[in-house]
Every structure is written in structure tokens, then in C-alpha cells.
Design a protein around this nucleic acid. Structure first.
Lengths: 345, 345
DNA sequence: TTGTAAGCGTTATCAG
DNA sequence: CTGATAACGCTTACAA
């Protein structure tokens, strides 16, 4: 790959490889004069140190693995962008993997990452129990792991995410405030966060003495295609809207569901927010371009990304035994951004 | 990082390292019996070969660098997802970089990638001339480079993207068909593709004998924040709509501009498509959730990604001298998806 | 069929 | 201040 090696420079300058190495690394043992000569020569000949050799010697790669369920949602893309920024800032590179919300792919990705050699792994696990054993063993033997976003996961390490229950509670509260109390909640099937987000919804209803109806709790299979999701939504909504107690609000617990339901409602000619108000999780940057502008529960992606990375770097650089560290779980605050989809006036 | 090494296995089994290596690599020189013994032992002790050592020896990393302007647009996220799929399928990993549409960051990313060691680079360059020299030298001395998406770039290598002129021509034609001939075109400033997309617009108007008005050609500075983009759009649109010859259609030449303008129009209470029809480049998956459902020029991201990757792998694996290869430029077909934002009934 | 030895390109230790 | 030597963990001629 690179053209000229350290050894060759040494030969050409009649110096030893170790001198060259030290000179290029600005060692105090080398005279300014030699340093200058070596550096100039290296520059001229466009010397690029072979990273593999260096890292082999040093025992680290400066790569960190990032494993996301999908890189295709706006939330993921944002997160990834900020992770990348923080990584570069700290002289680390990101090797990207996606699990497509599927344990098998998650396992494959983890194995690839460890085979490839990364100094640490940042993961949003598929489900609460997915690949727990593998991940534990990686964390114990291979490289540190930090869990983010999907933090309900039984691995003893740093975790960073949001308070899922509280966030949904707040969102439900907004609907209740505008007197929309017959709230349909859209959940992803088998997602680690679903349960907690659902609990927030249930608690809010309970606190405001609103009866919880099973028919209002919808689980959508997430592993299917977007068209399938749309179709399921359409069928369910059509059914519910024709029933005696048609809901007058929708709370989406995931970005995909929240955003896509708007398209389905438009298609069904159901007016938002007049007939049905909508609020839900989403970090979409086009919220204002949606039909109508969408009220969202917004996650602090930048903070989540930079903190997650920092936690991972701390573990990578820590001299302590992994068992000596007391791991923390950080919950970041979400914010509610109200827009037209919940504006009744 | 890994726990047990090849050498240690050798000691424990009273065999030589080379035997172990060959056994694990299924060499024909090794007896089935030994192979079995070695493999079982390796499995039990959870042996992970050190990738760095291996790649140092073999002279390749199995990593390819992907350098995108941004990873935050739906188009980029899709592309990245498909690139990742293809890469994994071919046993390559992706190291991700973004240039934030900025030459300096692009240069930094390229240097990092080469320092890090990648077997090839896939790049969508910032502009037509950005880092041309650096990239040429990388392509010549370091590892093969394939240009994608932003293919108007003077590097002699494989390129894959779309026919920008034709695509905009088609989009403009759709507007003309519905008799919306006073078309405002939104362009990004300093983007490599802008010129060609603009030419398509101009050619369409010319072919249909529609006068081209300079006031209808808008250039938006892309390097600014999203809010700044929105503000610029708002100001310009307000101005144009109050003028004597208010446009009755908008053609967006980039995903960000096309999608965001919908939010701005909604904000200004300008009705789409009644007052102004909108069409433009975008691969957004929520097109139906937009206000209104957006007519788009859709790029075949999956094909672009898998072909780009294939072209790069071909170069990586090619025995030929770089100068012996005749490089090709592949133009993929785009498709127009008509939705409500251009539906006049 | 197995083992020996050299080498990939660096860096670290220690001696000169 | 500079250099010799060993080592990181693996692969691969070549030798046995």
C-alpha cells in the first residue's frame, strides 16, 4: 500500500530504523538536526507509516465499532453523524455495522467487529436479551462495550439513553391536556424499549384516571418492509376509526411508526389534528415539512453520541480491571416539540 | 485484545505455529486428524486470530473507506445502508467518513483513511475540483478510488452516478405537462452536480420555447445550518411570490432543498400544488407523509451502491497496472414518482 | 505430514 | 545522541 518504508528511509539516509522511528515520533533522544533531515526526507518521499505494523506493535487499532439496528432512520443518521464527529475529534475511526433489528445479523456483526479488531464497541442491541452471552464475553475478554439508546439490556457496563417511560408519559400528557383522551399507542414488536415506553403511556392514563383499552395498544411487526408496515397501519386504523369508540389521538413510540402514520392518515383522508391528533418519537429534521407539521418527542442525539463515545474511550483508556469499575447508566432528558399535529384551534 | 494466540495453541498442543496456522486455514498439507484436534482446541479456547498480524502479513486490511458529503440526508443513509450490505456480503468492512461538503474536512478524511489503511476508497467529492491532486496521488500510489454520486470530477477512474441533466430535464417536463411553466429552480451553491442539473432545466425550457428568467434560478448556500437554509428560502420565496410574475412551480435539485421548501411553503401558507407545484430530487422514504405527498426524482440507491462497490472490488483485485485499465462511467436511470405535489385536478 | 525460519513494518529496550 | 536487537502474531517457502 504505502510506497516507502521506514527501513528504506534508514538505508537511504545511512541511519538505523530505530533512529528514523524516533525522529519521526519527535523523541527527545534525537538531535534537532537529524530530526529535520529525516522529516524532510520523509515528506519528500511521501512516507506513510504502515498503520497495521504500528497497531500490531502497539496492540490497538484506533477503530471503534458502532452497531446500530438500522442506519436508515433520521434518528440513526443523526446519531451516527455526531458519533463520527466525536470519534474523529478523538482520533478514532468508526467501523459501521447494522443489525437490521435481527439477532442473527447482530451476532454476525459482532463477530466481524472482533475479528476485524476494534478497540471498543458501541451498541444499540436488538432486544433485551439478544446475544447477551456473546457480548458479555467480548466485554470481558476482548474490548470494552458501551450500550446506548436501547439501554434495557442486562450487560454490566456503561449505558446511555433516555428515560423512556418519562418521555412517553410526557407525550401522553400533552394529548390529555388538549382533551384527547382516547389515545391509540403504536409500538414496535419485540423492541427492547417498547415495554418501557408503553408503561409511560399506561401510567399517564392511570394518573389521569383514563381507562386503558387493550384495543388501543397496537403492536406492529418491525422486521417487515416499510410497505408492510404501512399496510398494517392502514388496516388497523381503518378498523379502529370505524368502531364505536374511535380514538382521537395517536402516540407513536418509534420514529418510523410516528412518521409513517401521517402518510397513512393522509391516504385515508383522516384529518390531523382535527379528527385525530398525533405526537410521537422522532428526530426527523423535516418535521415542518410533514403533513401536518409533527409534534415530536425529541432525543438529544448530539449529547447522547458524544457522551457514549466518551464513556467508551474512558473504558478503553482505563487501567483498571473491568470488575473494579462501577458502571453508570445515564439518562438524558428528552424534549417535547409541539407543532401543528397536536394544535387544536 | 484477543486472548490466546496461535503460538500458545502450538505450545499447548506440542505442534509448531505453522502447523496450527495451516490447520486453521484448512490447508491440504495437514491431516484431517490434526486439523480436527487443532480446530476443536481453538474453538474451546475461543481463539480469535489477530487481524492486524494477519493483514500486516497479507498486505491488506479488508476495510474500504467511504467518504460522503454528509450522512444525514435520507439519500445518503440509504446509500450507506446498501453499501454496507454489499461490503459485508463481500467480507469487507466500511470505515465511514464525511466531508460536510467542505474541502478541508474532505482532505482530512482522506488522509485519515490512508493513514488508517484501507484497501480502497469510495468517494462522493465535495466539488468538481476538490482535493484532486491528493486523490490522484492516492489512486496512483496507495489504493484504488471509485467516484460515485458526484461524478463530475476529473479523476481517471470508474465513476457511477446518474444522468443529472436528463433527470432534471424530465422533472421540468412533468411541470410543463401540467402547464406550470413559470418554474423556480432551487440549486445548491458550489455543488459539483448543480451545473448539470441546472442545464437540464434550461434545456427543457428551451425545448418547450419557454423563456428562461434569471430570477427563477436560485442558489442557496449549503454549508450553512438548516435554519439558515429555511430562512433563505423563506425570504426568496416571499419575494418572488409578491412579484409580478410569481412562479407557479418549484423544481428542487437537491434532496434537502426539495424537502425543506415544503415546510417553508406551509409556513407561508402557500398552497401546494394549487398555488405552486413542487417536484425535485429526493429519496425520502416518508414522501407520503409530507405536506403534501411529494413528487420526486428518485435515484436507484441500491444499484448505485452495489455497483460502486463492485467496481471498487474489481480494482482492488485487479492484477493489471492502473494505467492498463479502461475506466468507465456508468449512468443509472432515475425515475419520476408523481404524487400530490404536482397533481392538479 | 509436520517443522524451521524468515519476514511483514513498526516500536521499545537497552547498550554503546 | 544513535544503533542493535527483539518483539508484536501471523503466513509461507522450504526443509525434514
Amino acid at each position: 500500500m504505502a510506497k516507502i518504508t521506514l527501513k528504506e528511509i534508514a538505508e537511504r539516509l545511512n541511519l538505523s530504523p530505530s533512529t528514523i522511528s524516533k525522529a519521526l515520533n519527535d523523541s527527545y533522544e534525537i538531535s534537532e538536526k537529524t530530526k529535520k533531515k529525516v522529516k524532510e526526507f520523509a515528506q519528500e518521499h511521501n512516507y506513510q507509516p504502515n498503520p497495521l505494523a504500528k497497531y500490531l506493535k502497539l496492540g490497538k487499532t484506533n477503530n471503534i465499532g458502532v452497531l446500530l439496528p438500522s442506519i436508515r432512520t433520521p434518528f440513526a443518521a443523526q446519531l451516527l453523524q455526531y458519533l463520527h464527529q466525536s470519534a474523529i475529534y478523538n482520533s478514532y475511526n468508526i467501523i459501521l455495522m447494522q443489525s437490521i433489528d435481527n439477532e442473527k445479523d447482530e451476532e454476525r456483526a459482532l463477530i466481524t467487529l472482533t475479528n476485524q479488531g476494534v478497540d471498543g464497541i458501541l451498541i444499540a442491541p436488538v432486544s433485551e436479551t439478544s446475544n447477551l452471552q456473546l457480548l458479555s464475553s467480548i466485554h470481558a475478554n476482548h474490548c470494552p462495550v458501551v450500550v446506548f439508546d436501547r439501554i434495557h439490556y442486562n450487560l454490566d457496563t456503561h449505558k446511555i439513553g433516555i428515560d423512556n417511560m418519562k418521555s412517553t408519559y410526557m407525550a401522553a400528557e400533552e394529548l390529555i391536556k388538549i382533551n384527547r383522551k382516547n389515545i391509540m399507542v403504536l409500538c414496535g414488536k419485540n423492541l427492547g424499549v417498547t415495554q418501557y415506553r408503553l408503561e409511560g403511556y399506561q401510567k399517564a392514563l392511570k394518573d389521569y384516571s383514563i381507562p386503558i383499552k387493550e384495543e388501543n395498544i397496537i403492536h406492529i411487526d418491525y422486521s417487515k418492509s416499510l410497505t408492510t408496515i404501512d399496510e398494517s397501519l392502514k388496516e388497523i386504523i381503518t378498523g379502529r376509526m370505524c368502531s364505536d369508540d374511535a380514538p382521537n389521538a395517536i402516540l407513536g413510540t418509534t420514529e418510523t411508526l410516528t412518521t409513517r402514520v401521517l402518510g397513512v392518515l393522509a391516504d385515508l383522508k383522516i384529518q390531523v389534528p382535527k379528527e385525530i391528533a398525533v405526537i410521537g418519537f422522532s428526530n426527523i429534521e423535516f418535521a415542518n415539512s410533514l403533513n401536518p407539521a409533527l409534534s415530536t418527542v425529541h432525543q438529544p442525539t448530539e449529547e447522547m453520541a458524544s457522551t457514549a463515545l466518551q464513556l467508551l474511550l474512558d473504558l478503553i483508556n482505563s487501567k483498571k480491571e473491568r470488575s473494579q469499575i462501577d458502571f453508570q447508566t445515564i439518562l438524558l432528558e428528552t424534549s417535547i416539540q409541539l407543532r401543528k399535529s397536536t394544535a387544536l384551534t
